[in-house]
Amino acid sequence: MAANYWDSTQAKFWTFTKPELVDMRKDLEKANQQLYNKYPLPDRRLMSIYIQQQLTKLGRRMSLRQQALATAQVYIKRFYLRVEMRKTNPYLIMATAVYLACKMEECPQHIRLMLGEAARQWPELGVSESSKIGECEFALISQLSSRLICHHPYRSLTELSPIFGLSNEETQLAHSIINDSYNTDLILLYPPHVLAIVAVFLAVVLRPAGQPAGLQAHSTHASASQQSPTQASPTSATGFSPTVSSSAAQQAFLGGFSGLKQAGPKLSKLVDWLAESKVDMNAVVDATQEMVSLYDVWESYSERACKEGITKFVKDGGTAGSSGVGPK
């Protein structure tokens, strides 16, 4: 585990309790009540799924690294804790977040290329000069208070896999579960290693060693994702289904924590290891629950609903108050 996570700005300034998150969002809602009434949006997690899928498509076009996309998602999450989404053009925020994340993750893209690719993918982007991305970059960095270094669970996963002797497939499965976790608040709530443990746990329960993917409803293309690190989520080739089906996740959750020890040596090793480690078990349980609940809500995902919700307020932007995100 990253020796320095506990000293990081992520731990100190960008990790919250659930009530804190609720309060921040309530404040945003209160300050923008009219916009909320006028422009209802689907569940926040569904909006996240939409954003993730959009970023993934962009990432594929531009052959971006997975890590950069994950960082961009974290920036977007943090930004929308401070700025009401309905006051922004989410496509511009997405393009800018990717542009900034690529520099942070050492795969910089030229600003004009970024604009071109984003404009091609999102007709709603609404800007045609790269200077708009440049200006939005200032807004983004300012809202993030220049705290741009992100700690992701992927690195913890790389450290944990050999400890638990995960197979390649299991590691890939855990990897895509981590991808899915960016559609929840978990990265704003818990340290990355907790999320990695949750992913390992779910992966092990869902696919005990030597057993075919019995519990899984959705097929995961684990090997495909290995070849293409740009894929945000090694989900089925046709598109973007969740890594785990809702019922499988629920089963895993119930089973895993109530004496499924006999499910396999890996799981019992994990359980023993957890018991001896100083890892916050409540966090692990709660985060697992959040994942189960994500897979549940995912069943109602409709790309159209999210897209249209955004289009409405982006179109009305002029009347909705184009004061943008500059603090008043």
Binding site: K87, T88, N89, L92, I93, T96, G126, V127, K132, E135, C136, F138, A139, S142, V314, G317, G318, A320, S322, S323, G324, V325, G326, P327
Partner: peptide, 10 residues
């Protein structure tokens, strides 16, 4: 709405 106007805080 076009762009994201930036207004410095400090």
């Amino acid at each position: 709405m076009n762009g994201t106007p930036y207004t410095p805080q400090r």
